[in-house]
Design a protein around this nucleic acid. Structure first.
Lengths: 217, 217
DNA sequence: CGCGGGACTATTGTATACAAAACGACTGGC
DNA sequence: GCCAGTCGTTTTGTATACAATAGTCCCGCG
């Protein structure tokens, strides 16, 4: 990861608090105060407030009674909703990408999926590496869509806990399936066929959703 | 408008700055400083910064070179993108609403569209009233979809300048067409037919988009 | 013993002062 | 005359102090 520990205190606060929530170290539904977060991160309340605004916009945090801060606790329905929205938006992104992707981006997609495949081919694949490459792959597709608003919306959705909490439970078979679906998406993008790309992406995400549902029942 | 001038300074700042941008009183692409905004609103920089975070998340404001603040200047492509995303998301909302809308919400929808129709029937319709009822109508549909994330995303998209800047240029005929489309959507929702509802909403918004494009060419 | 009111406390919201960084302009050298 | 480096100014970022407000707890009264 080796982040340069961004100079901005508010960025550090954002990253750190978000990491705490994603790692479950804060406990979903728990109430937090600006003060305690400030102490954890080691900065004053000002940058923490800044970070909280962002986290609130991204639904990692809610406000109860317009005051108290609660960390998000997603219900099964919430997760289903996220997957559904993500499927719709990311399928749209794939379709747009098919119409306008640059050759260089296609190359990068292939390289990324190759790294992902290589990891899976190892005797004991490192899930974290898989997730990183997977994330990178989807990010490339979204960027290729050339729609900043879409990218912004998806940015908030994609990284949400779902992936992290569940990927560990995916079977090796599921992971290889992902890699093959990525490969097919690349074919669709190369063919510049938006309908095909949309369909592949929709199937890819909805399959992941059901794999997730089954695994976490 | 008669807003109760919310107790929170940051809310006032948010509303006021947003209004300035929407009314075009700040000039798209212009650069602003926290200080000057603070003076305009009559509060300190702190709540202004708070408001700016929100406005930034909603893309009313960008940051150049990761520092300076610029008010958004939407290109034709940006506007097309907003309409496209809105059409997709709101059509989805309509489909979900068809499956789960409450009878009471249906009644409210009818009442809202009736008020909208009544306004159009007057000798000189007040566009502001039309816009308010129109907004309310769409809001009801979105809420009936029962998907908070979807509602959040659309909230940011729907109100964006498009509506305000352009509705004044819509012909009376266009406005009546909107009312009829709303009526058809209500039929689709009553029939609990998601596909129908989706199609009507898609058509409704894409028609509005093209009316807008033609009017602002 | 239960209920309401009021003071206390914890927490958020706002202002101000200060630090760091970025932009711009000026000057000196080449 | 042009480029680069540096200094000053402007603007953002952070800390701290203070104000307002919501939540709670306890006491007194019915």
């Amino acid at each position: 990861m080796s982040e340069p520990a961004s100079a901005r205190a508010s960025d550090r606060a954002y990253a750190e608090i978000r990491a705490l929530i994603l790692a479950g170290e804060i406990a979903p539904g728990a109430s937090v105060t600006e003060q305690m977060l400030a102490e954890i991160v080691g900065v004053s309340r000002t940058p923490v407030r800044d970070a909280l605004r962002r986290l609130e916009a991204e639904l990692y945090i809610r406000r109860s009674g317009s005051k108290r801060l609660l960390v998000a606790d997603w219900s099964r329905d919430d997760l289903a909703e996220m997957f559904t929205l993500r499927a719709m938006l990311e399928a749209h992104a794939a379709a747009r990408a098919a119409e306008r992707i640059e050759p260089s981006a296609l190359v990068e997609l292939k390289e990324t999926n190759a790294r992902l495949a290589a990891e899976l081919a190892r005797p004991v694949p490192d899930i974290a590496v898989f997730l990183a490459e997977n994330r990178r792959f989807h990010e490339l597709v979204i960027n290729a869509a050339g729609s900043p608003r879409l990218a912004g919306m998806l940015g908030k959705l994609v990284e949400q806990p779902v992936v992290r909490r569940t990927a560990a439970r995916y079977s090796a078979d599921e992971l290889r399936r992902s890699e093959r679906e990525h490969a097919e998406l690349i074919l669709a993008l190369e063919a510049r066929d938006p309908d095909w790309a949309r369909a592949v992406m929709t199937a890819h995400i909805r399959r992941a959703f059901h794999a997730f549902s089954a695994a976490s029942r």
